[in-house]
Write a protein that binds this DNA or RNA. Structure first.
Length: 821
DNA sequence: CCTGTTTGCACG
DNA sequence: GTGCAAACAGGG
């Protein structure tokens, strides 16, 4: 018998698929060392070697494959519980494909920020480097680098900042070879972690040892009564507890354990409320949608006029879903709104609500995320990124104010949360409810072609009438000067009447600041931003001219940079100037302002809303922030200073935006017992966007607008992808843009699949050709055929003949762009 | 022909 | 995103 040499038999070994958090289009496979095997789960993060570096990756699947190729091992598992379920993986993959964005970075965008680890190169000075510094065998740049490193070890970024210029990698490499410095890889990041508190318990079998201090005795007594107590709780009774328990642990009297806790993002507790009796229409809406729960994918557009009580419909529908054991996801446009809707959901559902929005600290966000991931919350409510809330399954997704542009993310992964809501609902066989008083053209088109069904709310709750809207033709009063140019006699008169009646007024102007067009009275040059192609806005409160794109500012005392004159004429009106005019015209009134300048501080929105509710404000001046879904029962008059600002934007959606904004802001009036009135000042009183807004009549608006969209080949009849280029050097950016443009023309050749199917517009310089010293070009690609459009751009960017990427020109892809500026 | 620098590629 | 190798330009 020939002896058989026994090898350890391992024909198959566990292999995991990892998406790394880097801009790479592929996923990578790794093997799992034995000691980590038990920890492997889809949705956890892992630390992996990647090239010569160590980076964070996401486990998106595992398999067991024959031991053939040589794979690297994962180095560590970073989470004790998954951050998302495996059901999310196809959703993430869909997003990566649709938005042409690397899967790992899609997941990074979805997850709470601040968790990931990466290694960075840290340079430390060595003795020979020290010696070289004093010799004269060093170049000037080497000398500055060495000098910088004498202070402390630095990474590349710090070094660049300290030295004040780019340091070539080759130089560092050389210095390392000479032994002047060492480069080590340090793992950094992961600032956001679980918060723990120290829990103190009695140690087992602790005998009465007789002689102990009264404080120690007090602690023991407390623990005997209450079982375990946290250190902060103990300190309330015994102030020195924090240090005492340490000694007592050494003495074997108590045990101390770290317990993970959730940070509390909620300020005051909210009193529970009871569901009110629904109006017939509301009840009908709930009754029509409830049977759709748990019955597969469906999208319903809930079209309800302003003040018709959509939120109550959401609440009761969510109740039906929760009672059926379904998870609920609620999206609202932005923080100012969240406070209200969030409060109502928390009042109704209490502990089971998780909130996810940018108003939370990173740690709070992580904790809310974990509560959802671990199935401890049944409802998640938040802004656009909440669409990624890691429920294993979702039964109902509600998108409030679905038309709102805030659902579209700019920069990075440019997703639209409203669209993703429908996609996620489809993936999870859920009901998606899109609600709005002014549905987007896109969504109403989907109703028209039978993709979505619709439920309507045509009347306000308590039967308040819709406000009466009166237009004032601004072209009739062109000769007026000063305040009267923008506060017409009729508006002034109505405000006075409202004040006399003790009611509140809302004045809307979609432009913040004092003067948006400061111009030199001597030479006629407007004051421009030095980094952007845009004029500066004077902010009186901040006493400075500011750029609304890059934040550049110069003092309000500046003279004209062109001629040195100190006579600056302040043309163009913003909310600040309107506020000042209100104070002048109505000295007895209490005037407040709500825009991005006044609402930055945490809690300022809540305070303002409270003041408004308690009638501490008579006149509120604001930007579109005031148009968004707030319920101000005391407001009976709304004044729109100039309705045309959005109408004249160079964007095919300008009419749609104007209609929505005006209908929404008008809807703020007359929500209480008193009927509302709206004074709408405009240069285009007969434009259909404005006439339709008067009656909140989105169907009439849609029927007009859809004709234009069809005739001009705009969405929803075509889909668009914007390719944007930006770079510091205007010439190089232009060259690359034109190269990309001719690559498009090559793809469009008559024998190819894209001929006459895909249309390329541009490349052209962007309407705002320079922002923050970045020169910008763009190209719009559109097609009636979504799949073909995506194939086209895929070939353009990633195909075999794709242009090589350049480091000095950034190219980004924006699928379904919103802003074409 | 050698060397310092830029560019394209691949990362499991 | 970055490190590395190959291509490249520039000077001896």
């Amino acid at each position: 018998m020939t002896p058989v040499k026994q090898k350890p038999i391992r024909p198959h070994r566990p292999i995991v698929s990892v998406a790394v958090a880097l801009p790479v289009m592929d996923c990578y496979s790794y093997t799992v060392p034995d000691h980590l095997l038990a920890l492997i789960r889809t949705g956890k993060r892992v630390l992996v070697p990647f090239g010569s570096r160590t980076v964070t990756g996401y486990l998106i699947g595992s398999s067991s494959e024959p031991d053939s190729t040589t794979l690297k091992h994962i180095l560590d598992v970073l989470d004790d519980a998954p951050l998302f379920s495996s059901a999310m993986v196809p959703f993430f993959q869909w997003i990566a494909t649709y938005y042409m964005y690397p899967l790992g970075q899609v997941i990074s965008t979805a997850l709470p920020a601040g968790l990931n680890l990466t290694d960075i190169a840290v340079m430390t000075l060595c003795p020979p480097g020290m010696a070289a510094l004093t010799s004269d065998a060093v170049s000037p740049l080497e000398k500055t680098v060495l000098t910088a490193l004498t202070k402390r070890p630095m990474d590349f970024r710090q070094l660049k900042k300290d030295v004040g210029q780019r340091v070539p990698w080759a130089l560092i490499h050389q210095m390392r070879q000479r032994g002047w410095l060492v480069v080590e890889r340090q793992i950094k990041g992961g600032q956001v972690r679980r918060k723990t508190i120290r829990m103190v318990r009695l140690a087992e079998g602790v005998a009465e040892s007789g002689k102990i201090s009264p404080q120690r005795q007090a602690i023991l007594d407390l623990l005997r009564q209450q079982g375990g107590l946290s250190v902060p709780d103990l300190s309330k009774r015994v102030p020195t507890a924090a240090s005492l328990v340490r000694a007592m642990q050494k003495a074997g009297m108590v045990r101390i354990e770290d317990h993970p806790v959730y940070r509390d993002p909620f300020g005051d507790p909210i009193d529970p409320d009871r569901p009110p009796v629904l109006t017939d229409e509301q009840a009908e809406a709930v009754n029509r949608m409830t049977p759709l729960l748990g019955k597969g994918f469906r999208t319903v557009l809930l079209a309800g006029v302003t003040g018709s009580g959509k939120t109550e419909v959401y609440l009761q529908l969510a109740r039906q879903a929760v009672d059926r054991g379904l998870h609920v996801l609620v999206l609202v446009p932005e923080i100012a709104l969240i406070s209200q809707t969030e409060r109502r959901f928390r009042a109704r559902f209490g502990e089971t609500v998780a909130v996810l929005h940018s108003g939370l600290s990173r740690g709070e966000r992580y904790d809310q995320w974990l509560r959802v991931a671990r199935g401890e919350a049944g409802i998640a409510i938040g802004a656009r990124s909440c669409i990624f809330a890691p429920f294993e399954t979702v039964g109902l997704i509600i998108v409030d104010e679905e038309h709102d542009a805030a659902y579209k993310q700019d920069g990075g992964l440019s997703y639209n949360a409203r669209d993703l809501a429908v996609v996620r609902a489809r993936h999870q066989n859920a009901l998606a409810v899109l609600g709005s008083a002014t549905p987007s053209v896109q969504s109403w088109h989907n109703v028209a072609i039978g993709k979505y069904s619709t439920v309507g709310l045509t009347r306000r709750v308590n039967r308040q009438p819709l406000p009466v809207i009166q237009t004032v033709d601004l072209s009739q009063i062109r000769d007026e000067r000063g305040i009267r140019r923008y506060i017409t006699p009729l508006l002034q008169q109505e405000i006075q009447k409202t004040l006399d009646d003790g009611h509140q007024t809302l004045i809307f102007l979609n432009r913040r600041g004092f003067s948006v067009f400061p111009i030199c009275a001597h030479c006629g040059q407007p004051l421009r931003c030095k980094n952007c192609d845009i004029s500066l806005t004077l902010h009186k409160q901040a006493n400075a001219y500011r750029c609304h794109y890059c934040g550049f500012s110069r003092p309000a005392t500046s003279t004209c940079p062109a001629c040195g004159s100190d006579k600056i004429k302040l043309l163009g009106t913003g909310t600040e100037k309107i506020q000042e005019a209100m104070v002048q015209l109505f000295p007895q009134a209490r005037v407040a302002r709500m825009d991005r300048d006044t609402m930055t501080r945490k809690g300022s929105v809540v305070k303002l809303l409270k003041d408004l509710k308690n009638r501490n404000i008579d006149i509120l001046v604001g930007t579109q922030m005031v148009a968004k879904g707030h319920d101000f029962p005391g407001i009976t008059l709304v004044g729109v200073v100039c309705a045309d600002l959005t109408l004249n934007f160079p964007d095919f959606r300008a009419g749609e935006r104007t209609f929505q904004l005006l209908a929404q802001v008008a809807g703020r009036a007359g929500r209480g017992k008193q009927p509302g009135k709206v004074i709408l000042q405009t240069f285009n009183p007969d434009h259909f966007s404005i006439t339709a807004a008067k009656h909140q009549d989105f169907v009439t608006f849609f029927n007009q607008e859809i004709g234009f969209r069809q005739a001009l080949g705009y969405p929803p009849f075509t889909r668009m992808i914007a390719v944007r280029l930006s770079g510091r050097d205007p010439r190089q950016t232009g060259i690359h843009a034109r190269a990309l443009g001719s690559a498009c023309q090559d793809l469009l050749h008559p024998e190819g699949p894209f001929h006459r199917q895909v249309q390329v517009m541009g490349p052209i310089e962007a309407p705002l050709a320079r922002i923050a010293n970045q020169h910008r070009w763009q190209m719009l690609i559109k097609s009636p055929d979504t799949a073909r459009l995506h194939r086209f751009v895929n070939q353009l960017m990633l195909g075999p003949n794709a242009l090589p990427t350049r480091r000095d020109v950034r190219v980004t892809i924006d699928v379904d762009p919103f802003s074409l500026m």
